[in-house]
Structures are given as C-alpha cells and as structure tokens.
Design a binder for these strands. Structure first.
Length: 260
DNA sequence: ATGTCGATACTTTATCGA
C-alpha cells in the first residue's frame, strides 16, 4: 500500500494539482498539510469522488491538515496530546485495518519556528517534545505506525543545498536537529533515507530567488516508521516532477510503499 | 538581490506566515 505526505500550501489554490497528482500516483493514504482552510470549506466532495474517506482538521487562514484514505477510518484523533491550550491545527491521525493488522497514520505539520529569537522557536521545540511523547506511547503499545508530514527539520547537512547558510535557521539549528535525532533514536526509520543511496534528496524548493531552477532545495518532509512498519517497507520516493507543474506548491509529495 | 506565494482584512494594497 502507498502512503504519501504533501504540504500543498493551500487547498483552494492547489485543488487542480492535488487532484491531478492523486489520479496519477494513486496513493491509498495521503497526508496533506497547510490546507489553509477551515474544515467546513475543505472540498470534501472532490476527494470523495476519487474514493477517499476524510479526516480533516482545518483552521482559518493558516495551517490545517487532512488525511485522505481509501481504507475506512477506524479511529480519528485531531490533537497532538500534551497541550490543551494549543489551538493550531497541525495534527490529525487515524487508524486503518490492513491485511497485516491495524496501522496508525499520523499526519503532522511541525511548526516552522522562525525567527528563532521569538516565542515561535520554543513553541516548535515544545511541539517536538509532545511528538516525542506521542511516539513513545505508541511504541510502548507496540503499535504499527507511520509519522508522516512536514517536519520543518533538515536532519543532516546533506539534506540542504548550503548548510552554512542554514546554521541559524530554526529548521537546522543544533537544538532542532538534536530533537529530531532523539525522535528517530527511539527506533524509528526515516523511510526515504533508508531506501536511497543518494544525497542530496530534496522535498522543498523556495518560491524565491530561482531556488527550483538552481536546485537550491531542502529535505524537510519525512515519513518516520515504527519497527513493525519498517519491516514492511518496500520502497520510498519523492515526486519531484510535481514541482515543475503550473502553480506548484513549494513542497512535493513524498511516499512509501508498505507490504499490504 | 528578502528575488515569491497564499490568505486575510474596516481590501483593491498592506500585513502576516512561510
């Protein structure tokens, strides 16, 4: 089965691209970030017509996430536990039934955190602590799960075009990378890195300064797999050709192929 | 070279977030 993640940068602006990509890629499950829409305004019918069940956690103007799934959604959680005062729509997770048992898919839009000398950065690090706790709880329950989304984290220097230019950025600061390493070191598998011998591998190219034309990209969209999910990993890919389409998102879809 | 987008509001241009 194919599970994808894609920051679409606005569902209203991107609906034609998203539908075209869904028809081309045929993912079983697609985790979308930055829908920039309230739940009520999300174009559910267009996705239901393609055979998808929906779990949408929207917000006015910014953020917003959604899961599209061809399998029925047995359970949906719309909040990352750990802070009831957090009103930003950055998380939705679901459980689906597969031939190999229950699979939990978490769709996350981790805070950007810039500029780092503002309250935005501690919010990002706090959010990463909560994600760590969520992963620990699911591992303790021996669940099979995938954490898919826009992490706004450049894991390693080889994941960006000019590491020295990113040193003070919230996406690459040592504290950010350390928090991401703590998460992975729980025993999770970075699917794209596990399936590739290449570097660099980018998933985002800024709209500015001809970043796409110069291939000045960064790798910030990740699928982290629990051990039981990693055992079923058959492949992973980045659909970078989508960045060359008309009116593209600044991110491209990233997907994995799991056995059954 | 902070060079581009998308969404919002007491809109028709400035702002915010990325």
């Amino acid at each position: 089965m194919k599970i994808a993640t894609w920051n679409i940068n606005g569902v209203k602006a991107r609906i034609d691209n998203v539908l075209a990509w869904l028809k081309e890629a045929q993912p079983d499950i697609a985790c979308l970030q930055e829908i920039k829409s309230v739940t009520e305004a999300f174009p559910a019918g267009a996705f239901e017509d393609l055979g998808y069940n929906l779990a949408v956690h929207g917000q006015k103007g910014f953020n917003g996430v959604a899961i599209l799934s061809k399998l029925p959604l047995d359970e949906v959680v719309e909040q990352l536990p750990g802070d009831d005062a957090d009103e930003q729509a950055r998380f939705v997770e679901c459980v689906v039934s597969t031939e190999n048992g229950a699979l939990r898919v978490c769709c996350l839009y981790l805070p950007n955190g810039n500029p780092p000398d503002t309250e935005k950065y501690p919010y990002k690090l706090g959010w990463m602590d909560r994600l760590q706790a969520r992963a620990e709880a699911l591992l303790a329950a021996e669940e099979t799960f995938v954490l898919a989304g826009d992490y706004n984290v450049i894991p390693e220097p080889e994941d960006c075009y000019a590491p020295n230019a990113w040193i003070d950025d919230a996406l690459f600061k040592p504290e950010t990378r350390a928090a991401y390493r703590r998460l992975v070191n729980l025993g999770l598998t970075d699917a794209v890195r596990a399936c590739s011998t290449q570097a660099p591998l980018y998933t985002f190219w800024d709209y500015q300064a001809g970043a796409w034309q110069k291939n000045n990209g960064i790798r910030i969209d990740h699928l982290l797999l629990s051990p039981r999910a990693a055992d079923r990993l058959r492949g992973a890919a980045i659909d970078r050709h989508v960045r060359a389409w008309e009116k593209p998102s600044d991110h491209v879809p990233v997907w994995i192929d799991l056995a059954a």
